[in-house]
Design a protein around this nucleic acid. Structure first.
Lengths: 141, 141
DNA sequence: GCATTAAAGTTGCTATAACAACCATTGTGT
DNA sequence: ACACAATGGTTGTTATAGCAACTTTAATGC
Protein backbone atom coordinates (compact mmCIF):
# COMPACT_ATOMS: atom_id res chain seq x y z
CA UNK A 1 0.00 0.00 0.00
CA UNK A 2 1.46 3.32 -1.05
CA UNK A 3 1.32 5.94 1.64
CA UNK A 4 0.33 9.47 0.81
CA UNK A 5 2.01 12.53 2.22
CA UNK A 6 -0.22 13.02 5.26
CA UNK A 7 0.08 9.41 6.43
CA UNK A 8 3.55 9.67 7.86
CA UNK A 9 3.40 10.22 11.60
CA UNK A 10 6.97 11.51 11.56
CA UNK A 11 5.86 14.38 9.35
CA UNK A 12 3.05 15.25 11.76
CA UNK A 13 5.58 15.29 14.59
CA UNK A 14 7.93 17.47 12.56
CA UNK A 15 5.22 19.98 11.65
CA UNK A 16 3.95 20.13 15.22
CA UNK A 17 7.43 20.77 16.50
CA UNK A 18 7.89 23.60 14.01
CA UNK A 19 4.60 25.19 15.01
CA UNK A 20 5.30 24.97 18.74
CA UNK A 21 8.89 26.16 18.36
CA UNK A 22 7.80 29.10 16.24
CA UNK A 23 5.26 30.11 18.87
CA UNK A 24 7.67 30.01 21.80
CA UNK A 25 10.31 31.73 19.68
CA UNK A 26 8.05 34.77 19.40
CA UNK A 27 7.28 34.69 23.11
CA UNK A 28 10.97 34.63 23.98
CA UNK A 29 12.05 37.22 21.42
CA UNK A 30 11.35 40.25 23.70
CA UNK A 31 13.86 38.80 26.17
CA UNK A 32 16.55 38.50 23.51
CA UNK A 33 16.43 34.75 23.90
CA UNK A 34 16.14 32.01 21.26
CA UNK A 35 14.34 28.70 21.98
CA UNK A 36 17.40 26.50 22.21
CA UNK A 37 19.28 29.08 24.21
CA UNK A 38 16.34 28.92 26.59
CA UNK A 39 16.69 25.14 26.91
CA UNK A 40 20.28 25.61 28.00
CA UNK A 41 19.27 28.21 30.57
CA UNK A 42 16.50 25.92 31.83
CA UNK A 43 19.15 23.32 32.60
CA UNK A 44 21.26 25.90 34.38
CA UNK A 45 18.34 27.25 36.41
CA UNK A 46 17.86 23.72 37.68
CA UNK A 47 21.55 23.14 38.25
CA UNK A 48 24.17 25.82 37.72
CA UNK A 49 27.78 25.15 36.77
CA UNK A 50 27.45 22.46 34.11
CA UNK A 51 30.26 21.82 31.63
CA UNK A 52 29.50 22.39 27.94
CA UNK A 53 29.83 18.68 27.48
CA UNK A 54 27.21 17.95 30.15
CA UNK A 55 24.82 20.28 28.38
CA UNK A 56 25.43 18.58 25.04
CA UNK A 57 24.66 15.18 26.58
CA UNK A 58 21.53 16.31 28.38
CA UNK A 59 20.15 18.03 25.30
CA UNK A 60 21.31 15.18 23.08
CA UNK A 61 22.92 17.63 20.70
CA UNK A 62 26.22 17.95 18.92
CA UNK A 63 28.85 19.69 21.01
CA UNK A 64 29.49 22.20 18.24
CA UNK A 65 25.96 23.57 18.54
CA UNK A 66 26.27 23.85 22.29
CA UNK A 67 29.58 25.67 21.94
CA UNK A 68 28.05 28.26 19.63
CA UNK A 69 24.85 28.67 21.64
CA UNK A 70 26.75 29.08 24.87
CA UNK A 71 28.99 31.61 23.14
CA UNK A 72 25.89 33.57 22.18
CA UNK A 73 24.54 33.37 25.72
CA UNK A 74 27.86 34.72 26.97
CA UNK A 75 27.75 37.59 24.45
CA UNK A 76 24.28 38.42 25.74
CA UNK A 77 25.60 38.44 29.28
CA UNK A 78 23.45 35.62 30.66
CA UNK A 79 26.28 33.21 31.43
CA UNK A 80 30.03 33.19 31.98
CA UNK A 81 32.44 30.41 31.00
CA UNK A 82 35.45 29.44 33.09
CA UNK A 83 38.01 26.70 32.65
CA UNK A 84 37.45 23.81 35.02
CA UNK A 85 40.12 23.50 37.71
CA UNK A 86 39.86 19.71 37.49
CA UNK A 87 40.17 19.37 33.73
CA UNK A 88 41.65 22.20 31.75
CA UNK A 89 39.94 21.01 28.56
CA UNK A 90 36.55 21.52 30.10
CA UNK A 91 34.54 24.77 30.21
CA UNK A 92 32.18 25.34 33.13
CA UNK A 93 29.10 27.39 32.33
CA UNK A 94 27.74 29.59 35.13
CA UNK A 95 24.80 31.95 35.24
CA UNK A 96 25.48 35.65 35.73
CA UNK A 97 23.23 37.74 37.97
CA UNK A 98 21.38 38.80 34.85
CA UNK A 99 21.00 35.19 33.79
CA UNK A 100 19.62 34.19 37.17
CA UNK A 101 17.19 37.11 37.18
CA UNK A 102 15.97 36.15 33.73
CA UNK A 103 14.71 32.85 35.08
CA UNK A 104 12.08 34.59 37.21
CA UNK A 105 10.57 36.02 34.04
CA UNK A 106 11.01 33.08 31.70
CA UNK A 107 9.96 30.12 33.86
CA UNK A 108 6.37 31.36 34.37
CA UNK A 109 6.24 32.06 30.65
CA UNK A 110 7.23 28.51 29.73
CA UNK A 111 4.68 27.09 32.15
CA UNK A 112 1.98 29.25 30.58
CA UNK A 113 3.11 27.92 27.23
CA UNK A 114 2.85 24.36 28.49
CA UNK A 115 -0.67 25.05 29.76
CA UNK A 116 -1.67 26.45 26.40
CA UNK A 117 -0.20 23.56 24.42
CA UNK A 118 -1.91 20.92 26.56
CA UNK A 119 -5.27 22.71 26.75
CA UNK A 120 -8.11 20.23 26.32
CA UNK A 121 -5.75 17.26 26.61
CA UNK A 122 -5.84 15.03 29.69
CA UNK A 123 -2.89 14.14 31.91
CA UNK A 124 -3.29 10.57 30.83
CA UNK A 125 -3.14 11.44 27.15
CA UNK A 126 0.03 13.46 27.70
CA UNK A 127 1.63 10.53 29.49
CA UNK A 128 0.58 8.22 26.69
CA UNK A 129 2.00 10.64 24.16
CA UNK A 130 5.31 10.80 26.01
CA UNK A 131 5.45 7.02 26.19
CA UNK A 132 4.85 6.62 22.44
CA UNK A 133 7.39 9.31 21.52
CA UNK A 134 10.01 7.59 23.66
CA UNK A 135 9.24 4.30 21.96
CA UNK A 136 9.71 5.92 18.55
CA UNK A 137 13.08 7.29 19.54
CA UNK A 138 14.14 3.86 20.78
CA UNK A 139 12.96 2.32 17.52
CA UNK A 140 15.47 4.26 15.45
CA UNK A 141 18.42 4.07 17.81
CA UNK B 1 4.03 23.62 40.90
CA UNK B 2 7.37 24.17 39.22
CA UNK B 3 7.97 21.95 36.25
CA UNK B 4 11.32 20.35 35.73
CA UNK B 5 13.04 20.04 32.40
CA UNK B 6 11.64 16.65 31.40
CA UNK B 7 8.03 17.57 32.14
CA UNK B 8 7.44 19.66 29.06
CA UNK B 9 5.75 17.64 26.37
CA UNK B 10 6.87 20.15 23.76
CA UNK B 11 10.47 19.30 24.54
CA UNK B 12 9.77 15.59 24.12
CA UNK B 13 8.20 16.35 20.74
CA UNK B 14 11.19 18.47 19.76
CA UNK B 15 13.73 15.82 20.75
CA UNK B 16 11.79 13.08 19.01
CA UNK B 17 11.62 15.13 15.85
CA UNK B 18 15.36 15.72 15.96
CA UNK B 19 16.06 12.01 16.43
CA UNK B 20 13.76 10.94 13.61
CA UNK B 21 15.01 13.66 11.26
CA UNK B 22 18.60 12.76 11.97
CA UNK B 23 17.90 9.10 11.17
CA UNK B 24 16.18 9.76 7.86
CA UNK B 25 18.84 12.31 6.98
CA UNK B 26 21.47 9.58 7.06
CA UNK B 27 19.28 7.24 5.05
CA UNK B 28 18.78 9.89 2.36
CA UNK B 29 22.39 11.10 2.28
CA UNK B 30 23.58 8.45 -0.23
CA UNK B 31 21.00 9.82 -2.69
CA UNK B 32 22.30 13.37 -2.30
CA UNK B 33 18.99 14.36 -0.76
CA UNK B 34 18.25 16.28 2.45
CA UNK B 35 15.10 15.56 4.51
CA UNK B 36 13.19 18.72 3.61
CA UNK B 37 14.19 18.44 -0.01
CA UNK B 38 12.67 14.98 0.15
CA UNK B 39 9.39 16.39 1.47
CA UNK B 40 9.19 18.65 -1.55
CA UNK B 41 9.86 15.75 -3.90
CA UNK B 42 7.22 13.67 -2.10
CA UNK B 43 4.69 16.35 -2.96
CA UNK B 44 5.83 16.37 -6.56
CA UNK B 45 5.73 12.58 -6.87
CA UNK B 46 2.11 12.78 -5.84
CA UNK B 47 1.34 15.72 -8.09
CA UNK B 48 3.90 17.22 -10.45
CA UNK B 49 3.92 20.84 -11.59
CA UNK B 50 3.23 22.72 -8.37
CA UNK B 51 4.15 26.39 -8.01
CA UNK B 52 6.71 27.31 -5.34
CA UNK B 53 3.93 29.05 -3.52
CA UNK B 54 1.76 25.91 -3.48
CA UNK B 55 4.65 23.99 -1.97
CA UNK B 56 5.15 26.62 0.72
CA UNK B 57 1.49 26.40 1.68
CA UNK B 58 1.35 22.63 1.74
CA UNK B 59 4.50 22.35 3.83
CA UNK B 60 3.43 25.30 5.99
CA UNK B 61 6.83 26.90 5.54
CA UNK B 62 8.12 30.34 4.70
CA UNK B 63 8.40 30.91 0.96
CA UNK B 64 12.05 31.91 1.33
CA UNK B 65 12.97 28.43 2.51
CA UNK B 66 11.07 26.82 -0.32
CA UNK B 67 12.81 29.08 -2.84
CA UNK B 68 16.23 28.03 -1.57
CA UNK B 69 15.38 24.35 -1.26
CA UNK B 70 13.92 24.25 -4.75
CA UNK B 71 17.00 26.05 -6.04
CA UNK B 72 19.13 23.28 -4.51
CA UNK B 73 16.93 20.60 -6.02
CA UNK B 74 17.37 22.26 -9.39
CA UNK B 75 21.16 22.39 -8.94
CA UNK B 76 21.05 18.67 -8.20
CA UNK B 77 19.08 18.09 -11.38
CA UNK B 78 15.96 16.63 -9.77
CA UNK B 79 13.58 19.40 -10.82
CA UNK B 80 13.30 22.21 -13.34
CA UNK B 81 11.61 25.57 -12.79
CA UNK B 82 9.67 27.36 -15.48
CA UNK B 83 7.74 30.61 -15.43
CA UNK B 84 4.00 30.03 -15.40
CA UNK B 85 2.24 31.04 -18.60
CA UNK B 86 -0.75 32.21 -16.58
CA UNK B 87 1.11 34.35 -14.05
CA UNK B 88 4.58 35.53 -14.88
CA UNK B 89 5.42 36.01 -11.18
CA UNK B 90 4.88 32.35 -10.49
CA UNK B 91 7.46 29.55 -10.89
CA UNK B 92 6.23 26.07 -11.77
CA UNK B 93 8.32 23.23 -10.38
CA UNK B 94 8.52 20.08 -12.49
CA UNK B 95 10.35 16.83 -11.97
CA UNK B 96 13.12 15.90 -14.39
CA UNK B 97 13.53 12.30 -15.56
CA UNK B 98 16.16 11.91 -12.86
CA UNK B 99 13.78 13.31 -10.27
CA UNK B 100 11.02 10.93 -11.31
CA UNK B 101 13.38 7.96 -11.26
CA UNK B 102 14.54 8.90 -7.78
CA UNK B 103 11.03 8.34 -6.47
CA UNK B 104 11.23 4.63 -7.17
CA UNK B 105 14.18 4.39 -4.84
CA UNK B 106 13.10 6.82 -2.15
CA UNK B 107 9.42 5.96 -1.66
CA UNK B 108 10.11 2.37 -0.50
CA UNK B 109 12.81 3.75 1.76
CA UNK B 110 10.43 6.19 3.46
CA UNK B 111 7.85 3.45 3.92
CA UNK B 112 10.47 1.26 5.55
CA UNK B 113 11.30 4.20 7.78
CA UNK B 114 7.65 4.59 8.72
CA UNK B 115 7.47 0.88 9.57
CA UNK B 116 10.52 1.15 11.77
CA UNK B 117 9.30 4.26 13.60
CA UNK B 118 5.89 2.74 14.36
CA UNK B 119 7.20 -0.68 15.32
CA UNK B 120 5.36 -1.98 18.37
CA UNK B 121 2.80 0.82 18.22
CA UNK B 122 -0.78 0.07 17.23
CA UNK B 123 -2.74 1.75 14.43
CA UNK B 124 -5.07 3.13 17.04
CA UNK B 125 -2.23 4.67 19.04
CA UNK B 126 -0.85 6.33 15.91
CA UNK B 127 -4.26 7.80 15.15
CA UNK B 128 -4.58 9.01 18.72
CA UNK B 129 -1.12 10.54 18.48
CA UNK B 130 -2.01 12.35 15.27
CA UNK B 131 -5.20 13.65 16.82
CA UNK B 132 -3.41 15.04 19.88
CA UNK B 133 -0.64 16.62 17.80
CA UNK B 134 -3.24 18.37 15.67
CA UNK B 135 -4.96 19.64 18.78
CA UNK B 136 -1.68 21.06 20.07
CA UNK B 137 -1.08 22.89 16.81
CA UNK B 138 -4.59 24.34 16.97
CA UNK B 139 -4.00 25.41 20.57
CA UNK B 140 -1.20 27.78 19.63
CA UNK B 141 -2.68 29.16 16.43
C1' DG C 1 57.82 7.56 30.97
C1' DC C 2 56.74 7.88 26.40
C1' DA C 3 53.65 6.77 22.56
C1' DT C 4 48.99 6.13 21.63
C1' DT C 5 44.12 7.03 22.52
C1' DA C 6 40.51 9.41 24.08
C1' DA C 7 38.00 13.47 25.39
C1' DA C 8 36.53 18.68 25.38
C1' DG C 9 36.19 22.56 22.48
C1' DT C 10 36.66 25.21 18.18
C1' DT C 11 36.38 26.22 13.18
C1' DG C 12 34.46 25.42 8.66
C1' DC C 13 30.86 23.61 5.92
C1' DT C 14 25.96 22.45 4.43
C1' DA C 15 21.05 22.45 5.34
C1' DT C 16 16.99 23.94 7.48
C1' DA C 17 13.79 27.82 9.46
C1' DA C 18 11.69 32.42 9.73
C1' DC C 19 11.66 37.53 9.42
C1' DA C 20 12.42 42.01 6.95
C1' DA C 21 13.05 44.47 2.92
C1' DC C 22 12.85 44.43 -1.73
C1' DC C 23 11.44 43.76 -7.02
C1' DA C 24 8.31 42.42 -10.56
C1' DT C 25 3.76 41.39 -11.79
C1' DT C 26 -1.15 41.21 -11.15
C1' DG C 27 -5.64 42.76 -9.26
C1' DT C 28 -8.75 46.43 -7.55
C1' DG C 29 -11.15 50.68 -6.96
C1' DT C 30 -12.87 54.60 -8.61
C1' DA D 1 -6.79 54.28 -17.09
C1' DC D 2 -4.01 55.02 -13.21
C1' DA D 3 -2.86 54.85 -8.34
C1' DC D 4 -2.59 51.50 -4.81
C1' DA D 5 -2.75 47.15 -2.80
C1' DA D 6 -1.79 42.33 -3.00
C1' DT D 7 0.90 38.40 -4.55
C1' DG D 8 5.08 35.43 -5.93
C1' DG D 9 10.02 35.29 -5.54
C1' DT D 10 14.66 36.74 -4.12
C1' DT D 11 18.33 38.50 -1.02
C1' DG D 12 20.20 39.32 3.57
C1' DT D 13 20.41 38.23 8.38
C1' DT D 14 20.03 35.35 12.67
C1' DA D 15 19.50 30.87 14.86
C1' DT D 16 19.51 26.09 14.98
C1' DA D 17 21.52 21.22 13.66
C1' DG D 18 25.12 17.93 12.65
C1' DC D 19 29.49 16.22 10.27
C1' DA D 20 34.63 16.46 9.53
C1' DA D 21 38.95 17.99 10.82
C1' DC D 22 41.73 20.16 14.08
C1' DT D 23 44.04 21.74 18.82
C1' DT D 24 44.75 21.09 23.53
C1' DT D 25 44.72 18.33 27.47
C1' DA D 26 44.06 13.96 29.98
C1' DA D 27 44.17 8.96 30.41
C1' DT D 28 46.02 4.42 29.09
C1' DG D 29 49.26 0.73 27.75
C1' DC D 30 53.29 -1.31 27.82
Amino acid sequence: MKLSWGDYISIAIHQTDLTLTSYIKNKLAPFNLAPEQNLILMLLWERDGLAQNDIAEKLDKDKTNIARMVLNLEKKGFIKRTISQYDRRSLIVKLTQEGKALGDKIIPLTEEFNQLVTKGITEKEIEELGRILTKMRMNVQ
